[in-house]
Each structure stands twice: as structure tokens, then as C-alpha cells.
């Protein structure tokens, strides 16, 4: 059975569900989202000044729920592996980008700005909004801009793969180090000092891990994008 036909047979149940959803939404409206209950986030905010870094979201992403981030890295890793498996060594489908003078000069102008901004977002992720994911993708997009404008350029696969391996292995090793030193996986073994709070070097392993995440995400995004943007002159 084609998936669409099956989905259409689901439409009926979909609409029943919609009716239910609408009813419940009206119910939510009437009750108003409960603002008075104590959420886990409040507890984390209280803990943050002694355990974390200035940007609480970073503390949560990298430390309190760091295991989710490890899983997320694994998702990206598997996805880029899958994209590579599907599209690698595949010369038939290529995107031909006509690079003109405007694109070339604009990319020359923009590349340093984007890459500096990306690195800033990545390294200051524990003090200001941003972090490894956003910074990594920004750096990857700067490289993508160069790839589009310059036909002959290609980031060697070995470099991407080496960065990726290094970052991934060191992330898991930091986790295992915590397990070894204090019996807790991903423990912040470089215990943070409250006096440093808000400085660039603060928070123990948190900035280190976020930079590692940035390298990993950046190299994987670069890999995915480079695979999707095949040009006739590569392999």
C-alpha cells in the first residue's frame, strides 16, 4: 500500500484527533497554564551559580543534561554517516553553481566576518547566547560560501574526518574520565570556582565540551553539505 493512501486512511483518525486536540486546547485556555508549580528549571537556576556558567542554557545543555547532548551528537554523526553512505562517490548528480564576480567578491568579504562571528559564538557560548551547535554550523556555512564561490576548492575529506573523530572521541573520554574520577559519567571534574563566574575561563569542563561539540557539529555539517553539493570535478 502506498504510504500516501495509508496516510489518507489515517485522515479520519487525524480529524478525530484534531477535535480532541481542540477540545483540550480550549480546556487549557480555560485553566491557563499553571504558573505556580515548581518546575525542574527553578531548581537548576538555584544550583547554577555554584555549578554552572553564566548562560544557564549552556549549563543545562552541556552539563545538567549533557547526556542528551551526547545523544544529539550521536544523531548528527549517524545522519552524516547516512548522507555519506547515500551520496558518496556519486558523480552523476551534481549541482552546477555559476559563480560570478559578485559572488566571488562578496564571499571574500563575508568569509572572515562569518567565521569570526562563528568562532565567537562557539567560544563565548557559556557567557552569551549561542554555543557549539550554532557556532559550528556558522563556521560550516562560511566554508560553504567559499565552496560555492570557488569551483576548485574542496575541503579534504581526511581533514573533516580527523576533526570529527578527535572531537567525538574526546567527548566520550571526558565523560569516562568523570566516571573514573568520581563514579559519575560526564561529571564536571574540573570543579568550577564561584569567583570565576562570568569569566571566559569558568565552569570547568563546560566551555571545553561546548567547543568540542562545536568542532564535531561543524565538521559533520560541512560533510553533509559537501556531499549534497557535489561538483563534477570531484572524485
Amino acid at each position: 500500500m502506498s504510504i500516501k493512501r495509508s496516510l489518507s486512511t489515517l485522515t479520519l483518525s487525524g480529524f478525530t484527533l484534531s477535535a480532541l486536540l481542540i477540545l483540550s486546547f480550549i480546556n487549557i485556555l480555560l485553566q491557563n497554564v499553571a504558573t505556580n508549580i515548581e518546575r525542574a528549571g527553578d531548581g537548576l537556576l538555584k544550583l547554577n551559580s555554584s555549578e554552572g556558567v553564566a548562560n544557564v542554557v549552556t549549563t543545562v545543555v552541556v552539563y545538567f543534561r549533557g547526556f542528551d547532548t551526547l545523544g544529539e551528537i550521536a544523531v548528527l554523526f549517524i545522519a552524516s554517516l547516512g548522507v555519506g553512505l547515500m551520496l558518496e562517490r556519486n558523480t552523476e548528480c551534481t549541482i552546477k553553481v555559476q559563480s560570478n564576480f559578485m559572488l566571488q567578491s562578496a564571499s571574500k568579504l563575508l568569509f572572515p566576518i562569518i567565521i569570526i562571528f562563528g568562532l565567537y559564538v562557539m567560544i563565548y557560548g557559556h557567557l552569551s547566547p549561542g554555543g557549539g551547535f550554532q557556532g559550528g554550523v556558522l563556521v560550516a556555512s562560511a566554508v560553504l560560501l567559499l565552496l560555492i564561490s570557488n569551483k576548485d576548492l574542496e575541503v579534504p575529506h581526511a581533514v573533516i574526518s580527523a576533526l570529527e573523530t578527535l572531537a567525538g572521541v574526546s567527548y566520550v573520554l571526558i565523560g569516562l574520565m568523570g566516571l573514573l574520577l568520581s563514579d559519575v559519567f560526564l561529571f564536571n571534574f574540573l570543579s568550577p570556582n564561584i569567583a570565576d563566574f562570568g569569566l571566559l575561563l569558568s565552569g570547568g569542563i563546560i566551555p571545553i565540551v561546548y567547543i568540542i561539540v562545536g568542532i564535531k557539529v561543524g565538521s559533520e555539517m560541512g560533510f553533509i553539505v559537501q556531499n549534497l553539493l557535489k561538483r563534477s570535478d570531484d572524485v
Binding site: L70, A74, F77, G168, V169, V172, L176, L179, F185
Partner: peptide, 19 residues
């Protein structure tokens, strides 16, 4: 021994296959 190894070791293996 720790049960986290059930997840950590396969991940470590996955990340280090190029080596």
C-alpha cells in the same frame, strides 16, 4: 561496574572507527 558503559562504549566505538 557502571551501566552507562552500555551506551558510552558503542558511542566511543562509533566515533573512533576511522582510527
Amino acid at each position: 561496574m557502571s551501566s552507562v558503559l552500555f551506551v558510552a562504549l558503542p558511542l566511543l566505538f562509533g566515533f573512533s572507527t576511522p582510527i
